[in-house]
Design a binder for these strands. Sequence first.
DNA 1: GCGGATCAC
DNA 2: TATGGTGATCCGC
Length: 809
Amino acid sequence: MDSTKEKNNNYKDDLLLRMGLNDNKAGMEGLDKEKINKIIMEATKGSKFYENELKKEKQVNQRIENMMQQKARITSQQLRKAQLQVDRFAMELEQSRDLNNTMVHIDMDAFYAAVEMRDNPGLKDKPIAVGSSSMLVSRTKLIKVKEILADYDPNFMAMSLDEAYLNITKHLQERQNWPEDKRKYFIKTGNSLENDKSGKEINKLSAHERSTSPLLFEDSPPDLQPPGNTSQVNIEEQNNPQILQNSVVFGTSAEEVVKEIRFRIEQKTTLTASAGIAPNTMLAKVCSDKNKPNGQYQILPNRQAVMDFIKDLPIRKVSGIGKVTEKMLKALGIITCTELYQQRALLSLLFSETSWHYFLHIALGLGSTYLARDAERKSMSVERTFSEISKAEEQYSLCKELCSELAQDLQKEGLKGRTVTIKLKNVNFEVKTRASTVSSVVSTAEEIFAIAKELLKTEIDAEFPHPLRLRLMGVRLSSFPNEEDKKYQQRSIIGFLQAGNQTLSATQGIEKTDKDQFLKPLEMSHKTSFFDKKRSERKWNHQDTLKCETMSRQSLQTSPSFQVLKKKMSEDLETSENSDNGQIFTCPVCFREQESISLEAFNKHVDTCLDGPSLSEMFSYSHASSTEVNKKENVHHSFSLSEKQDYETHQNNPSKAESGDALSKGECSSLPSKSFNIEHCHQNSSCTISLEKEDVGSLRRQEPLQPYLCEVITDQALVCPVCNLEQKTSDLTLFNVHVDICLNKSVIQELSKDNQVNQPKENTTGPGNSGRVQKTVTKTKRSGLMKKYSASKKIKPNNPRHTLDIFFK
DNA sequence: GCGGATCAC
DNA sequence: TATGGTGATCCGC
């Protein structure tokens, strides 16, 4: 990686060198500067890549310039104030420092071998020799590595093919009581002729390792028995005369554990690994780089050791600090972590909150001790570089091919999404992305192409009469529905097909001509048959309803009834805002009375409800409430202490503390918010009571729509025409909104009871396993690492990345 | 939601 | 010799 950085930074020098003209040489040969420059210009002329690099560099420099100007405007007064604020936060972080976990980062050495194989699929699964290292690698071996890692942390997190994080804290505890036998491994020795290379590497190892270092073993060795079953090992040994009676016992310390891991990996795969051991992932990652290759490094779990390590550490070594960030910080005189700490107040004034929090964590040697579970993927894409393509026809057909490839990949994972993005890079290396989001999911090549084609067309037209001169094209699909969305969608499609209708809410010019495509996924075949039966028993005309299920939540929120409700609520809230004796409002989703109640809390509650449990739960809220509370709690438990503190510190909702209702607490904001916001509204109120379903109608194509709700004479209980349940409200606006929602979820509501009965227990094994909450907590792989830094962010608790954009531009 | 930018591997 | 592909996030708009 380092060499890459150098290359990027010194393209000019690189050119000179390649031409055999480094500065000294040039001087000696009597070439004057002009001549050299001329040569450079000629060499780089037409190198669009280089020109683009320069352009990007200028942009970065401009950013830096802006930053410096901003810096110049900062008064000492501001700086002092910032210093206080930052130091208060730093103190909180310090208090929350957690040194009780032992995190390990494993990094497979020379993994380019695997990359090589990707380009040579024919070699798949065959051990091949790669490069000069004569190392053997196969993918099957990767599986073995994973098996080994799982012995030490079943929840280890694989970052990529060649990297993983482990939390071995628990293993270490258990290991303290293990007898020697359980920590004993037999060394397999191979032909000594092969050992030149490994012999060299052994020299790098410690004395202990040298005496026990494994010799590389050709081909897949017979499996070692799991530790603890020594008798079997012995038996196997007798049956395998090649295996010499050489064994090694590993100790019980973290260092020994990691040696053991690396030993086992090498024995099983002949691959060497480097490792870092530290109290958090951020440090562990840096550590694993320290003694690469085939080495390890530990930061002991005490503050002094951490700070000593951090002291002179160049910030660039930290994952997340890239080339640009390095350069910007360098402009502020920051290169090491110590300097990063010294400039903390300034940084808080120049960078976004996310960024300076992140910086402060680094400067204090803090990081995550929590390994996020593998998250669901957010997008899938294909892109290809080629020599210039300028003809529109070729571009379209290329686009089509890419869509086909993408569709195939999508099918492998059974994914469908709503946003199609094309990426175009022209011959000047300028990159453009263009996206379009549709209201129902797409997945087939035809569907994707229908959208991508339009995007491409727009770009081609925009350039007319000149052609688009492309060197890269890509297609991406994203906005995959979450699990709940999927259920609705699936059922609605099935129901729809059963009902024998013609087209599914075609939107934005996508032609859904092939209905069979919806039948392909296997999961629809038997799992839903039961529901289909149930559904067909329904008396009411479900056709409209089924179609309406595809209506997104967003459209619901912008629906007239919601707008009306918002307005009404706003007024109510406004009038009561200054009084502390919280007025009681009724949530339009669960119909439960909310009595906290700040505007914010109520908004959050409604958001949560909209995102929340199925309607059946909502309709009988007495049951739903406890589960809801559990979910919130669960979110909280998933944060580390510091995150929690950090997070709570930033809650500014005055009503949260005393309220016994978890839903009105600030925790709700840790859920992704769909922002159903009741805003302060000063318009006069015009409460329409009955609701013509124009909003839904926009998604329906066929029968004329009848208002499903007539003016209702009260006194009588209101019964929802969709769910057929009597509603606990006499407020017609609320009732209208309910029907809106119900219409969206109707079938699910009816069937979810059955669903619950039939579902495996996995959802109820405990608060920790609620799918939705998990998803919230473990958004991406990387978020596990970085989560801590973003936990304090009020608006978007899940922004794990730290692209360090400056406040200003 | 979109688009550019940054980062990691 | 010419400079990759995939996935994710942040931020301003």
